[in-house]
Amino acid sequence: MKEFKVTYFFDEQHYIRRFIHVESQEMAEQLIQSERDQYISFTDSRGIYHELNTKNVRVIQISEYHRKK
């Protein structure tokens, strides 16, 4: 299982980041596309709960993430 960093940008200064665990980049893209124009909820790495309307997002970036141990 790989870890991917997903960043939702609202404008140049405001964004929310989440981490997902899926098998491949393609599966990460499919997940993000399936959530388009919906409310999603998740808890970030700091333990903060988020509810996000993906309809209001301007840009979404997905990249594989390699945690430093």
Rank of each mutant, 00 (worst) to 15 (best):
Y49D: 08
S45K: 12
S63L: 04
E51V: 07
I20H: 13
K2G: 02
E12I: 07
E35M: 12
I48R: 02
Y39V: 11
I16F: 13
K55D: 12
Q38A: 12
E12A: 09
L52R: 11
G47N: 06
N53D: 15
Q61F: 08
S34M: 00
R67D: 03
R46I: 00
Q30T: 14
Q33R: 11
L31D: 10
I20E: 09
N53F: 11
M1L: 05
I20V: 15
R36T: 13
F19P: 09
Y65W: 13
F9R: 06
D11K: 07
E64R: 05
S24M: 10
F10T: 15
E29H: 10
Y8A: 03
H21V: 06
E51H: 02
Q30P: 03
S63F: 05
M27H: 14
H21D: 04
E29Q: 15
V57T: 05
E35K: 12
T54S: 12
V59H: 07
D37Q: 12
Y8N: 11
I48G: 01
E64K: 06
S63C: 10
K68T: 02
V59E: 08
F42M: 02
I62C: 07
K69S: 03
I20F: 04
R36L: 11
I40Y: 10
D37G: 05
L31V: 12
S24W: 11
F10R: 12
Y65H: 10
F4M: 00
Q13H: 15
H21W: 00
E35L: 07
R67T: 06
K2V: 06
K69Q: 01
N56G: 14
M27A: 09
K68N: 00
I40N: 06
R67V: 01
Q30M: 14
S41E: 13
I60G: 03
H66D: 02
K55S: 12
S24Y: 08
Q13M: 10
S45H: 14
V6C: 09
V6H: 02
K5A: 01
R58A: 14
